[in-house]
Design a binder for these strands. Structure first.
Length: 272
DNA sequence: CTAGGTGCCTGATTGC
DNA sequence: TGCAATCAGGCACCTA
């Protein structure tokens, strides 16, 4: 499940390789991957468009195109964007295959078919409601404190709420709360200012480390970078999917509970 | 505003 | 062994 660090890695790779390239054609293997516009219009509008830039907002990838359109992608659970030579073997779960003007293909591969692509004139129509980017400099401890002041729900679902902060998913939420020593069901309004500062630092550190390690690949079909390579951050996880194992900090036993319908891993001994 | 449920999907896991 | 039921999970959308 690609979250901010995984999408950041893919975006940085793709920017290097795709800026200046042109989409020459698209093969649609599963039309359901296209959110908008309708299939025929999508095909007509993407063909011949030159890529000016590739950037990330939350978990979305945004390709700015010369004709003022934006090609927007959300990978959801199992989506991948792979850059392959057009001659490369077909990927089993390929849903959309974009031919490029340099003999390569950008392949949208998505086993579970949750991912979506959009071709729109204004990307704000899609990403406009997202909360702040946690790694930009205007996201400060004070900003986080102000944001939390109006909230009284449990902290983990809040971290997962993309309108609250953009880019955090289930893996990094658990790792962040472990690093900050905060129990996933703590009410946001009971956090002390010291805890909020710790939470702030944990958000930044955990996400940055994820980026530094080029993302988290937990199993075979999970996240891959644009070259199809696994990330390295899975070796760095301290609680996620480690139920029954000893806490690396206090030696307690990591527990799995369900919070907001999501599998949640934490150490009951050092997270209050 | 929060919390809970459903649906979208399919491979992996679990149950009998 | 084999097949069916269940699970996982990001997010939209619904209800309370």
């Amino acid at each position: 499940m690609p979250e901010l660090p995984e999408v950041e890695t893919i975006v940085n790779d793709l920017r290097q390789r795709l800026v200046g390239r042109r989409f020459t054609n698209v093969a649609v293997c599963w039309a359901g991957s296209i959110a908008e516009p309708h299939l025929d219009k999508f095909r007509r509008r993407i063909r011949g468009q030159r890529i000016l830039d590739v950037r990330r907002r939350g978990k979305y990838l945004i390709f700015s195109l010369l004709g003022d359109d934006s090609f927007v992608v959300h990978l959801k659970m199992t989506g991948q964007l792979l850059l392959r030579p057009a001659t490369a073997e077909r990927d089993k779960y390929a849903r959309l295959v974009f031919d490029l003007d340099d003999g390569k293909q950008l392949r949208f591969v998505d086993m579970r078919k949750f991912g979506r692509v959009y071709l729109v004139d204004d990307p704000e129509a899609i990403v406009g409601e997202l909360g702040p980017e946690p790694l930009t400099e205007d996201f400060t401890p004070e900003a986080l404190m102000r944001m939390l002041r109006r909230r009284w729900g449990r902290i983990k679902p809040l971290l997962l709420n993309q309108r609250f902060i953009a880019g955090i998913g289930n893996i990094y939420a658990d790792e962040i709360l472990f690093a900050a020593r905060i129990h996933p069901t703590r009410s946001a309004d009971t956090l002390t200012s010291a805890e909020i500062e710790g939470l702030y630092r944990a958000i930044r550190d955990v996400l940055r480390q994820g980026i530094q390690n080029r993302g988290t690949t937990l199993d075979d079909k999970a996240y891959r970078d644009a070259e199809g390579r696994a990330g390295g951050n899975q070796d760095n996880l301290r609680v996620f999917r480690r139920a029954g194992q000893p806490c690396p900090r206090c030696g307690g036993t990591i527990q799995r509970i369900v919070v907001g319908g999501r599998g949640t891993y934490f150490c009951p001994r050092c997270q209050e």
